[in-house]
C-alpha cells in the first residue's frame, strides 16, 4: 500500500494542516493583541497547545504515510509512555517488579507485534486471557500479600487501557473491508481526527459558552454547553468526511457520534483516576496538554468499540 498515492488521504491530511495554520494565525493575533503585558494564562496555554499540536500532527502524519509499520510503532511508543505514566501514579510494591517488567517489555511489544502481523484471533484475547493469567501469577510469586488484589487489579487495568484499548487504533489497518482494500489508513485517520476534534471542539465550545458544569467533581472544566456543542460539531465533521470512509454519510455520522461519546466518557473515567490519586495531569510530556494519557484518554475508550462495531457491520 502506498499511502502517498491515495489522493483522499492526502486531502484529509491537507485539511488538518489548513486547520493548524488557521489556529496558529488566530493564536498569533490573540498573543499580539495582548500587548506588552503578555498574554493571559488561558491564551498562553492555547498557544502552547497549538504548538504541541503541530508536533503531534507531523509525527502522526509521517507515521501514517509510511503505511502499516510506522503507525504500529508510533502507537506502541504511545502505549509505552501512557503505561509509564499510569503505573507511576499507581502505588505498587517491590514484589510487583517482575510483573511490571513483563507488562512493559513482554506484553506491550507482543500485543503490537500481533497488530503488525495481523493475527486477529490472538490480538483479541492476548491481554485479557494470557496477560491477565500471567500478571497475577508473577505478582503472587513475589510473595507480598499486602493489598495484593488492589495492586494486581491496577496493573491489569493499566495494561487494559494503555495497551489493549489503544492497540485497537492501529488494528484498524488489519480490517478487511470489501471494496476498501489498502485504504484503511483513512479509517484510522477518521477515528483519530473525529476523536481529537471532539476534544478540541468541546474545549472551544466550553470556553465560548460554558456555564453549567456536567461533572463538577470529576472534571470541573467540562460543561454541558461544551459537551453538546463539541459532540454535535464533531459528529457533523465525521458526517462531512464520509467520502473517506467505507460508510454511507449517515453511517459516518453515527460512528462519529459513537466516537465522540465514548471519548467523552473515556476522558471522564481517566479523570476519576487522576482525582483519586490527587493529581491534575498524568505527566508533563506534551506542553499545554499534560501527559500522554491526558491526550489519548478519549481515544483509548473509543478505539475498541469503533473497531469491533466496524468489524461486525462491515467485515464479512
Amino acid at each position: 500500500m502506498n499511502a502517498l498515492r491515495d489522493p483522499q488521504l492526502l486531502r484529509l491530511l491537507g485539511g488538518v494542516l489548513a486547520v493548524l495554520v488557521i489556529s496558529s494565525v488566530i493564536t498569533r493575533v490573540l498573543v499580539a493583541r495582548a500587548g506588552p503585558a503578555g498574554p493571559s494564562p488561558a491564551i498562553a496555554n492555547l498557544a502552547a497547545r497549538v504548538r504541541a499540536w503541530w508536533v503531534m500532527v507531523i509525527v502522526f502524519a509521517l507515521a501514517l504515510l509510511t503505511g502499516g509499520t510506522g503507525s504500529v510503532v508510533l502507537f506502541a511508543l504511545m502505549s509505552f509512555m501512557a503505561l509509564r505514566e499510569f503505573i507511576t501514579l499507581t502505588p505498587t510494591r517491590p514484589a510487583d517488579h517482575l510483573a511490571l517488567f513483563a507488562a512493559f517489555f513482554l506484553v506491550l511489544p507482543f500485543q503490537y507485534v500481533l497488530v503488525g502481523i495481523g493475527w486477529y484471533g490472538l490480538f483479541a484475547v492476548f491481554v485479557p486471557v494470557y496477560a491477565f493469567v500471567a500478571i497475577p501469577i508473577l505478582a503472587a510469586v513475589g510473595g507480598d500479600v499486602s493489598h495484593y488484589l488492589e495492586r494486581t487489579a491496577k496493573i491489569q487495568w493499566g495494561l487494559m487501557v494503555c495497551v489493549y484499548f489503544l492497540s485497537h487504533v492501529p488494528a484498524i489497518l488489519m480490517l478487511e473491508i470489501p471494496g476498501y482494500a489498502g485504504q484503511n489508513a483513512k479509517l484510522l485517520l477518521f477515528l483519530v481526527l473525529v476523536g481529537q476534534s471532539s476534544d478540541v471542539l468541546q474545549y472551544v465550545w466550553g470556553k465560548l459558552l460554558g456555564r453549567r458544569k456536567v461533572a463538577p467533581v470529576l472534571s470541573p472544566s467540562k460543561t454541558w454547553e461544551g459537551l453538546i456543542g463539541g459532540v454535535l460539531s464533531a459528529s457533523g465533521l465525521g458526517a462531512a468526511l464520509w467520502w473517506a470512509t467505507p460508510f454511507p454519510w449517515w453511517g459516518a455520522a453515527l460512528f462519529a457520534l459513537l466516537i465522540t461519546l465514548m471519548g467523552f466518557f473515556g476522558g471522564l473515567v481517566m479523570s476519576a483516576i487522576k482525582r483519586d490519586r490527587g493529581v491534575k495531569d498524568y505527566g508533563a510530556l506534551i506542553e499545554g496538554h499534560g501527559g500522554m494519557m491526558d491526550r489519548i484518554d478519549s481515544l483509548c475508550f473509543s478505539a475498541p468499540v469503533f473497531f469491533h462495531l466496524v468489524r461486525h457491520f462491515f467485515v464479512p
Binding site: 509505552f80 505514566e85 507511576t88 511490571l100
Partner: peptide, 9 residues
C-alpha cells in the same frame, strides 16, 4: 537486588 529496570517516571 534487581537487575532489570521498570521504566517508570
Amino acid at each position: 537486588g534487581r537487575a532489570l529496570p521498570v521504566p517508570l517516571i
